[in-house]
Design a binder for these strands. Structure first.
Lengths: 145, 145
DNA sequence: AATCTAACTGAAAAATTTTTTCACTAACCC
DNA sequence: GGGTTAGTGAAAAAATTTTTCAGTTAGATT
């Protein structure tokens, strides 16, 4: 169990949630993943850790983790979306278009741009989501000769 | 009919598509919208222009416009998404969290950051999606006293 | 450790969303 | 105007998500 997984379990406890096997399976599936996981992905992977894990519980646990701010929604190219454990702080995701491997990206440089934008439009800017698409080094090696 | 709508119809013709009434209704619904439209939104609004418009046709027309690059997917706060006509060039969307009104944003300042990122990670960066959330001036006036 | 109890569970059913199928319609070329 | 074929809506099917509910289990109490 890695640090991230452990702190997540602590966070559940701290919020009065029970540490059930199905929940641990969902969390482990997410903690182990290297790409955004759809509900079906989490279900399939989670069953490796809890054979009876039901799809409904995946939906419920995802919702719970989102409410706790521990999970990010990552929009895939088309209209599908997956979930990835959130690291603390402000992060974005760089997703490989081919294999879906993701890495977290910190230190985005949009603050000045957004301040400008607020001034120009009169909107109060409350947040932003940046998703970056690319081809990871492994896939480049395999497919770009 | 505004310019945008007209050029869209031209683009359909240029690609060998027929200009049917249901398609025109979908396009007009999108051209008139001030917020991202879900499939259901487009269907409801489109029926004002073509009373028999079927939901299936909305799905098909949306798919067609996406393939032509004329439509952007705009992810709403949660897991829902809507569609908005794409302006030519590189644009992002600023969406009001309260009323969903959107405005298009040009001139994002990420190029340097993305170049850096490519260097650091070895990814070849192929695109990015930036969605900015905020509260529009009207909603600020109404709800922020 | 045994007991209690409410949070939690999975299965089934229901609701919703999206895709497929198909007979009919209408846009566009002549 | 007439023919052809892309395009249509309705209905059915498939896929996804939510609700319901009786049974189970985590964790507090003793």
């Amino acid at each position: 169990m890695d640090d991230r997984e452990e702190s997540l379990l602590d966070s559940l406890k701290a919020h009065g949630y029970r540490l059930t096997k199905p929940r641990q399976a969902v969390i482990r599936a997410l903690a182990t993943a290297v790409k955004p996981m759809t509900v079906a992905d989490i279900h399939a992977e989670g069953r490796r850790y809890c054979a009876e894990l039901g799809l409904v519980t995946v939906y419920r646990t995802v919702e719970m983790l989102l409410a706790l701010g521990q999970l990010h929604i990552v929009h895939l190219d088309a209209e599908r979306h997956g979930y990835a454990l959130a690291s603390p702080g402000h992060v974005h995701h760089l997703v490989c278009s081919r294999c879906r491997r993701i890495i977290e990206v910190t230190g985005c440089t949009l603050d000045g741009f957004l301040d400008d934008l607020a001034e120009r439009t009169g909107y109060r800017i409350t947040g932003h989501r940046l998703e970056i698409a690319g081809i990871c080094p492994e896939c480049r090696a395999k497919f770009e000769s």
